[in-house]
Write a protein that binds this DNA or RNA. Structure first.
Length: 119
DNA sequence: ACAGTGACAACAT
DNA sequence: TATGTTGCCACTG
């Protein structure tokens, strides 16, 4: 695995299909670091710096394990994330809750993970 | 080298 | 159930 952890996170997030979501912890687990959920959040936080290279990372599809939008800072940000998700067909409640029983992404299979970490 | 930071998650009251 | 508290990890200056 030559890629940095951050790069690996972006790699996984790019695979989340439109209309589905997953959690920080699940992304971390897929990368073999089940307790690095917080680091995943930190990685996505870094995307806010404008960098053409990461424009294709659908960061809005990552929420917390309870199904809530978990972005901090300006309340605007949460509304923005909710809007992006609704545009993709994901139902987001006024309380920013998403039904994981419906919209949770199944995740990557092991072979795909190995390939991603190798690239 | 090292302490501080944060878009988390699990556990304990 | 609902808060509050405690680990955690990768990255940064």
């Amino acid at each position: 695995m030559s890629k940095s952890f951050f790069e690996q996170v972006y790699g996984v997030v790019r695979r989340i299909p439109k209309g589905k979501v997953t959690s920080y912890g699940r992304v971390a687990a897929m990368l073999g670091a089940p307790r690095a959920a917080r680091a995943v959040g930190y990685a996505l936080h870094g995307l806010r710096i404008k960098d053409q290279r990461y424009d294709d990372v659908p960061w809005q599809r990552v929420i917390n394990h309870a199904g809530f939008i978990s972005i901090r800072g300006a309340p605007n940000s949460k509304h923005k994330q909710a809007e992006l998700l609704r545009d993709e067909g994901v139902a987001v409640g006024d309380d920013f809750k998403i039904d994981l029983n419906i919209f949770l992404w199944a995740g990557l299979e092991l072979p795909e993970i190995n390939r991603m970490m190798r690239d």
